[in-house]
Simulated scan of single mutants.
Amino acid sequence: MFNIGMGEFLVLGLLAVLVFGPDQLPKAAKQVGSVLRQLRRMADSAKSDIRDGLGPEFKDFDVEDLNPKRFVQKHFWEAEDEDEAAQRPVSQLNGRRPPFDDEAT
């Protein structure tokens, strides 16, 4: 998700020491860690509630499939059928030529 190099990490650490001070930094880090753990627990609980609410028909349901970008990729761009590949933009064909229909022109 984030692409943080060693230089950026050192700058962030120095900034944290300047903002919180060396004596308050461990407490702040502990609070941030506990908040992140609590948020992760809440997200996991919400995912399990959604799965339980959907019932056994959707046992393989993945919450990330609700992301609109992933939904479109899953349902429109995964088919390898030539008819469906003809409707893809050229950038999505992975170096293959689109099918040519002599009767269409």
Rank of each mutant, 00 (worst) to 15 (best):
R37A: 15
V72L: 11
K47H: 09
L54Q: 04
A16D: 00
F71K: 14
E103I: 05
T105M: 15
A29Q: 02
V35N: 12
L14F: 07
R40C: 09
K59Q: 09
A79V: 12
R70H: 08
L15W: 05
L15K: 09
L10H: 04
E84P: 02
N94T: 06
A28G: 01
F20Q: 00
L66R: 06
Q92T: 11
F9Q: 05
M6C: 04
W77A: 14
P89V: 08
F9G: 05
L66E: 03
E78T: 15
K69A: 10
N67W: 04
N67H: 13
L36A: 15
D23F: 04
D65Y: 14
E80W: 06
V35D: 10
E103F: 11
D52V: 05
L54P: 01
V35S: 15
K30P: 00
R88K: 09
A29W: 02
F58C: 09
V63E: 06
L15N: 09
R97Y: 08
T105P: 11
K30L: 10
L15I: 03
R96E: 12
L93M: 12
A104F: 07
T105G: 14
F100I: 09
S48D: 15
G7T: 06
F2K: 07
A28N: 00
S45H: 11
E84D: 14
K69I: 11
L15D: 08
E78W: 08
D52K: 10
R97N: 05
A29T: 04
A104L: 11
L18C: 04
F76M: 08
H75V: 09
M6K: 03
D52E: 13
F71D: 09
V11H: 08
R88T: 03
F76H: 02
P68F: 03
K47P: 01
L25P: 00
F20E: 00
D81P: 05
N94P: 06
F100W: 14
M6W: 08
L54R: 04
P99C: 02
S45N: 09
A28M: 03
G55S: 01
